[in-house]
Design a protein around this nucleic acid. Structure first.
Length: 338
DNA sequence: TTGTGTTTTACGACCTCC
DNA sequence: GGAGGTCGTAAAACACAA
C-alpha cells in the first residue's frame, strides 16, 4: 500500500502517468497475474523492451521506494509482498509499515548510510541541510497529461541528491582508485544504499500497468484522499496495491552497482575537467597577435584538432589503471573493472 | 526574493573488449 | 551481445550576488 501511495502521489510529479483511480480491496498476498494478462497488457517484450520506452521518467515514488529502502528503513519504506523472487533483500509486506511523510519519506528521499534510521535521516539532510521540503513535490499541481505520453528522457529525469555521507565514501573510494572492480561497486552500492534496490519505472510500464488494471477490471475512482501528509496507509482499501507492487518490484530493479558506476564515470569526468583547467592555467595563451589583413583568398586550410588531453590523466592519477586510451579517450583496457 | 552561474546526477551515443 | 569506458548534455540542486 505504501507503494501504491507513492505511486499515486507520483501523479503530481509525473503528470503524464495516466492512471486510473479506483477502489478495490485485494489482498496483496493473493495476487496472481496470468502470463496472458501480462502479455495483453504489454503487447511487447517485458524487460528486453525497456529501452524502447520513452526512458527516464522516474517517478519520484519509485525513486523514493528505491532510496527509501536504502535509508535504513527498508521494510518501512516499502511493504513487499509475495513476489519474493524479485530480490533477496525483500522485506515482508506489512500494512503498518507505511511511514509518514515527515519520517518515512524523509528517509526514503534522503538515502543515508546504513544504521539507525531515525538518526540517520536527521543527519542526512544532504547537502548541508538545505534540502527542500521533502513533501513539496506532493503539493505540486498536476500537469495536463494529454499529449505528453511521449517524453524525452531528460525531460522527466528525476535526480537524487546523494547524502554527504554517500559522497564522502565515494570520494574516499575514488581517491583510493579511479577505477574499481564490479565487486567493489556492488559493495559500495550495498554499503551506501545507492542502487541495490533502485527501481527503474518507465512510462511505458506504468501505462502497461494501467492497462493491466483495466484488463482486470481494476478501475480506480478518483477522489481517494490521504491521511494528510502522513500517508499512513489511508489508501489501503482504495488501491490495487498488488499491481503496483508487482510492477514495481518485479520489473524495475536495476543492477546493483549502476549508480556507483555512473558516479565514478562522472567523477572521472570531473577530474578530467579540472585537470584540463589546470593545464590551461599553466599554459596561459599568449594574447592574440594583431591579425594582419588576409589578402589571400582561397580554400581554408583545415587545422587538425589537437589530441585529446585525456591522456595526461594517465600519469596524473595515482592508482589509476594502466589502461590504453581509445580514440574517444575511453580506457580500452580497464582491467581493474573486471 | 530573484536571477544567474556552477555543480551534481543521469543517460544517450558511440567506442572497445571479451 | 553485453559490460563498461568516454564524451556531451539535460535538468535538478545548489550557491551567491544584487
Amino acid at each position: 500500500m505504501y507503494v501504491s501511495y507513492l505511486l499515486d502521489k507520483d501523479v503530481s510529479m509525473y503528470p503524464s502517468s495516466v492512471r486510473h483511480s479506483g477502489g478495490l480491496n485485494l489482498a496483496p498476498q493473493n495476487f496472481v497475474i496470468p502470463g496472458a494478462v501480462l502479455a495483453a497488457a504489454y503487447g511487447a517484450p517485458l524487460r528486453e523492451d525497456w529501452n524502447g520506452y520513452a526512458p527516464g521518467a522516474r517517478p519520484a515514488a519509485a525513486n523514493a521506494v528505491a532510496h527509501g529502502l536504502n535509508g535504513g528503513s527498508p521494510a518501512a519504506a516499502m511493504g513487499y509482498s509475495s513476489p519474493a523472487d524479485y530480490h533477496p533483500h525483500h522485506h515482508p509486506h506489512h500494512p503498518a509499515a507505511a511511514p509518514s511523510c515527515a519520517s518515512g519519506l524523509l528517509q526514503t528521499l534522503n538515502p543515508g548510510p546504513p544504521g539507525p534510521a531515525a538518526t540517520a535521516a536527521a543527519e542526512q539532510l544532504s547537502p548541508g541541510g538545505q534540502r527542500r521540503n521533502l513533501c513539496e513535490w506532493m503539493r505540486k499541481p498536476a500537469q495536463p497529461s494529454l499529449g505528453s505520453q511521449v517524453k524525452t528522457r531528460t525531460k522527466d529525469k528525476y535526480r537524487v541528491v546523494y547524502t554527504d555521507h554517500q559522497r564522502l565514501e565515494l570520494e574516499k573510494e575514488f581517491h583510493y582508485s579511479r577505477y574499481i572492480t564490479i565487486r567493489r561497486k556492488a559493495e559500495l552500492a550495498a554499503t551506501l544504499g545507492l542502487s541495490e534496490r533502485q527501481v527503474r519505472p518507465l512510462q511505458g510500464l506504468w501505462t502497461a500497468r494501467d492497462r493491466l488494471c483495466e484488463g482486470l477490471g481494476l478501475l480506480r475512482s478518483e477522489g481517494t484522499s490521504f491521511a494528510g501528509e502522513g500517508g499512513t496507509g489511508a489508501r489501503a482499501e482504495h488501491s490495487p496495491f498488488f499491481l503496483d507492487t508487482f510492477f514495481t518490484i518485479s520489473f524495475f530493479p536495476l543492477p546493483f552497482h549502476v549508480q556507483v558506476k555512473i558516479w565514478f564515470q562522472n567523477r572521472r569526468a570531473k577530474e578530467r575537467k579540472i585537470n584540463k583547467k589546470k593545464l590551461q592555467q599553466q599554459q596561459p595563451q599568449p594574447p592574440p597577435a594583431p591579425q594582419p589583413p588576409q589578402p589571400q583568398p582561397g580554400p581554408l586550410r583545415s587545422v587538425p584538432e589537437p589530441l585529446s588531453p585525456v591522456s595526461s590523466l594517465q600519469g596524473s592519477v595515482p592508482g589509476s589503471v594502466a589502461g590504453v586510451l581509445g580514440p574517444t579517450g575511453g580506457v580500452l583496457n580497464p582491467t581493474v573493472t573486471q
